[in-house]
């Protein structure tokens, strides 16, 4: 569901500008038109399609990435504003040999269904884990990540499991028993 106007009238296009940032740990130097959305640059120019487009207006969180450690909507960021920043996308969370604890928890607790919202959920949950937030914060801090499949319980359970294990070991608590994880 792409609602952006990505069509390019070359006659109207403005000159490209150089933008440098750190992406998933590696330096990037791009020559891009300044107002293009970070979301499009990631998916199209940088071959990182893990970041999804849902609403295109900052409501759904499917395009969540971390800029300088904070979750933001990549559909609302003109790429020129990335100059000098550090960006982490869902592709940058896992190590070479192991998934990120949040990813592990989503697998273990069935947190993904159709998968469109999942990368944004995982990115926001990874930020919550970085911030050492507790499971009681999940429903508020995840309010900007909308899912149309699961009804949220499995997602909340997954995130609670990821937050409840500060040593990085995924929690093996059964679904529903995780703190703050029950809708019932």
């Amino acid at each position: 569901m792409t609602v952006s106007h990505a069509h390019t009238h070359l006659a109207d296009a403005v000159p490209s500008q150089e933008v440098r940032f750190t992406l998933n740990g590696a330096p990037q130097k791009l020559s891009v038109r300044p107002f293009r959305r970070l979301l499009d640059v990631l998916r199209t120019d940088l071959d990182l399609p893990g970041t999804k487009e849902g609403c295109g207006e900052g409501e759904c969180g499917a395009c969540s990435v971390l800029i300088d450690g904070e979750p933001i909507n990549a559909c609302l960021v003109p790429v020129i504003q990335c100059e000098g920043t550090t960006i982490v996308t869902v592709e940058g969370l896992a190590g070479h040999d192991a998934l990120h604890p949040v990813q592990q928890a989503f697998m273990q607790h069935g947190g993904a269904q159709c998968g469109i919202c999942t990368p944004g959920m995982v990115v926001t949950a990874a930020w919550m884990r970085d911030q050492k937030l507790g499971p009681e914060a999940i429903r508020e801090k995840l309010a900007g990540n909308i899912c149309r499949c699961t009804g949220y319980s499995a997602i909340v359970n997954s995130v609670a499991a990821a937050l409840g294990t500060p040593d990085g070991t995924p929690d093996s608590t059964p679904d529903g028993a995780a703190p703050g994880g029950s809708d019932a």
């Binding site: 106007h5 009238h9 500008q17 038109r33 300044p34």
Partner: peptide, 13 residues
Amino acid sequence: SAIAHSAVAVTRP
């Protein structure tokens, strides 16, 4: 007609 993102000029002082 809509202005394409690629047609927008931005300065960054």
